[in-house]
Amino acid sequence: MQEHDISWVRTEMALAETAPRSQTGLGAWVRKNLFATPFDSVLTIIALLAVASFLPRILDWLFFSAVWTGTDRTACLTTEQGGQLPAGWSGACWPFVSGRFGQFMFGRYPMDERWRVVLTGILFILLLAPLLIPRAPFKKLNAILFFGVFPFVAFLLLVGGAFGLRYVETPLWGGLMVTLVISYVGIVVSLPLGIILALGRRSHMPIVKLLSVIFIETVRGVPLVTVLFMASFMLPLFVPPGTSFDKLLRALIGVALFASAYMAEVVRGGLQAIPKGQYEGADSLGLGYWPKMGLIIMPQALKLVIPGIVNTFIGMFKDTTLVLIISMFDLLGVVKQNISGDPTWATPQTAKTGYIFAAAIFWVFCFGMSRYSQYMERRLDTGHKR
């Protein structure tokens, strides 16, 4: 047999080479994301000019010309030296925020009992953090504690009336505390209820499908304000006469039902995106309906609609401000109440500062949820690689 020359064939793996300098570093990122095309360059320049025009004024109002100490509105009526604002104007009135910070966080919750709210918040963070960390151990136990045990512990701590704890009625609750309570209950209830409604809408049983469609379309066809009014004024009519129905509980039911209807449509979109072969493969394994949905279909569907789920959570978190119409004072409601009902701090600067503080709190929570959802999308993006 004639031998062939194979000297041109590589016998060792080529060593990895570093990427060209033009493709790495800050300069490459700027060229790729800000100046990739002439149109992108024009938009980038316009944006930079806008930022250069407004950002110094905003920073000046928020910090450099702001008032940091004072006991009443008079401290916020004069311009401090060194600012760029017109004479007779001051910047942000931060003494208002520091002086009313306790009310912004706890509402009218008794001061000597606020340690219970703080303890509840600490327990919430300690139980939630391991759930958000993918590699944290004891996930099942942690989930049981967070979703099954924590609500009862939180109710006992916040409401009291047992184990020597003073009873604190819910009309005294307010501020960020109410915002987080409503959001937590809405999120915990809306996701499983939305999954059930989505499965019901895709069910082959006519009665189940009809009831699911009626509920979803009815709730989605009215604004949250209407749902809150119905929960506040109509729901007590369906309970026996003389039954005490807490106002906060009515708001929790209204928000949870409203969010579950939107969540059902988000989940249904994920179910429709699953290829038919996945259903057929599960059937070929002899799986029943619930094992098929729980082990094969639903995990894939939920992974696909993470953005929609988090978007619903963010919308619900912001919509908690609407409970003000049924005389429940969340963070924004308490800020507004202190601005309009307290002549000690009645100035335009006080109002602007209070609303900016509330907006900053909402932004921090919403931005955190958004960033975490993006992290989970990247982590779970294993079946749809580009």
Rank of each mutant, 00 (worst) to 15 (best):
M1I: 14
G200V: 03
T79H: 13
F163T: 12
F245T: 15
A259E: 13
V97D: 03
T170K: 04
T321V: 04
L172C: 07
G254C: 03
L157P: 05
G25V: 00
L34R: 07
E377N: 11
A351I: 03
M328F: 06
S41W: 05
G269A: 08
P275T: 08
F35L: 11
V323S: 07
R250P: 03
R268C: 09
F54Q: 05
Y109N: 01
G341I: 00
F54V: 05
P343F: 04
G174W: 00
L224R: 08
E3Y: 11
V213H: 09
G160I: 05
M298N: 14
S41F: 04
Y355T: 12
G333C: 03
I309N: 02
L295S: 13
E113H: 13
F64V: 15
P171L: 02
A36G: 11
P206C: 09
L228S: 01
F150W: 03
E280H: 05
V305L: 12
E265W: 05
L131G: 06
E3V: 11
G174L: 00
T353H: 08
F229A: 10
V9D: 11
D5M: 02
G91P: 01
F54T: 04
G281R: 03
P299Y: 02
P343L: 06
L224T: 12
L119W: 10
G99P: 04
P86F: 07
T344C: 09
E280S: 05
P38Y: 01
V239S: 08
R116E: 08
A66N: 00
L48D: 11
G288S: 12
V67C: 02
Y375K: 12
A87Y: 10
I195C: 06
K32Q: 15
G91S: 08
R378E: 12
V334G: 06
A14Y: 10
K292Q: 15
G99A: 11
Q2R: 15
R166A: 12
A14I: 12
L127K: 07
F152M: 13
F163Y: 12
W345Q: 06
V97Q: 03
L132C: 10
A261L: 03
F258G: 01
Y109P: 01
Q349F: 07
V310S: 14
A251L: 08
V149Q: 05
G281V: 05
T226L: 14
P299W: 02
T78Q: 14
N142P: 02
R10H: 13
P299T: 00
A28Q: 07
Q2I: 13
